[in-house]
């Protein structure tokens, strides 16, 4: 009597287990449907962010162009928003001047560093230098701005006596230093992807290391190197704190690097600072400048992706 009741209890247990298992299976199957939906929703956030950026920039910029006609914005050569003249050209030339100086610094130094790291340096040296160089990319830009204003500008002042305290040259040089790791690291990746057989072929023909680097590796990695430079240009255009601190807030329509200028980004900082009221023309003008900046950097990023994809040599 005793045993039969335990057997009965055991079968009940098993039935219970099976029931529980089925229940669990059901939950699992439901999870398999719910989880991907949730994950897709999260992935959608990045698309929403992009849409949000486009929407806000466009909406407020359209508000601006309702007040200031397009041709004044693009062809007037004076940017004095507080006295009502909205010609964006001085801001664009200011941005281009900074970018030009930065690239003049970063292009030779970055590519030379990439060639050194990929062609000349031993594995040990590369392992030491590369992370240290990348520290440069991790330093906050406000720190670079401080350094440009309190160190680079005084040093340059000794060489060029009539340099203004806020000037494009000092800011441009420091922006250039900031983007060196970007050029060096991406270019070196491209050079590393060049197969050794090409180098060995050139070496066997009696080339020196320099000839291998310039006539074999650099041409073979050319698309990657160009893409890295275009990306660096995009970074330089969008750089804000260095130019806000060291290049000044005076939108001069000039290409003289000793003068104080204002970039697109620096105006956005100035235009959104405390005393601008919501809905004023200045408030809207910030977004018109913002969308100009956004178009410039987006074009550069797309160009870099296109170059990297279109002209890549497959080995």
């Amino acid at each position: 009597m005793d045993t039969s009741s335990t057997i009965k209890k055991k079968t009940l247990d098993v039935q219970e287990k099976i029931r529980q298992n089925k229940e669990k299976q059901k939950v699992l199957r439901k999870l398999e449907k719910v989880v991907p939906a949730f994950l897709l929703l999260c992935a959608g956030f990045s698309v929403i962010t992009t849409a949000g950026i486009l929407f806000t920039l466009l909406k407020e910029a359209i508000g601006f162009f309702g007040v200031v006609p397009l041709n004044e914005f693009f062809f007037n050569t004076s940017w004095r928003p507080w006295s009502g003249s909205f010609g964006v050209l001085p801001l664009i030339t200011g941005t281009l001047l900074i970018t030009l100086i930065a690239i003049l610094v970063a292009l030779p130094l970055g590519i030379a560093a990439a060639i050194f790291l990929s062609e000349y340096a031993s594995a040990r040296v590369r392992k030491m230098i590369k992370p240290t160089l990348e520290v440069l990319a991790g330093i906050p830009t406000v720190v670079y701005g401080f350094f440009a204003l309190t160190f680079v500008t005084p040093v340059l002042e000794k060489l060029i006596p009539d340099l203004q305290i806020f000037n494009a040259l000092s800011a441009g040089i420091v922006v250039g230093i900031m983007i060196i790791p970007m050029v060096a690291s991406l270019s070196e990746d491209a050079m590393n992807a060049v197969p050794n057989s090409l180098r060995e072929g050139a070496m066997a023909m009696g080339s020196t290391k320099f000839e291998v680097a310039m006539k074999v590796v650099l041409p073979a990695a050319f698309s990657g190197v160009v893409a890295s430079i275009v990306l660096a240009i995009s970074r330089a255009i969008g750089e804000t704190m260095i130019v806000t601190i060291a290049a000044g807030q005076s939108p001069n329509f000039t290409f003289d690097p000793t003068m104080s200028i204002q970039t697109l980004t620096a105006f956005i900082v100035q235009g959104t600072s405390g005393d601008t009221t919501y809905g004023s023309t200045i408030y809207y003008s910030v977004y018109a400048v913002g969308i100009t900046l956004f178009v410039f950097t987006l074009a550069m990023n797309l160009l870099a992706q296109y170059i990297a994809r279109r002209f890549r040599e497959e080995y």
């Binding site: 992009t50 995009s234 990023n301």
Partner: peptide, 21 residues
């Protein structure tokens, strides 16, 4: 591709998004 492009948007533009939104 959208994420790749978002990574290249200048940080100050994110500031403008935050200001409006």
């Amino acid at each position: 591709g959208n994420i790749q492009n978002l990574a290249g948007v200048p940080s100050i533009v994110f500031g403008l998004l935050g200001l409006t939104f």
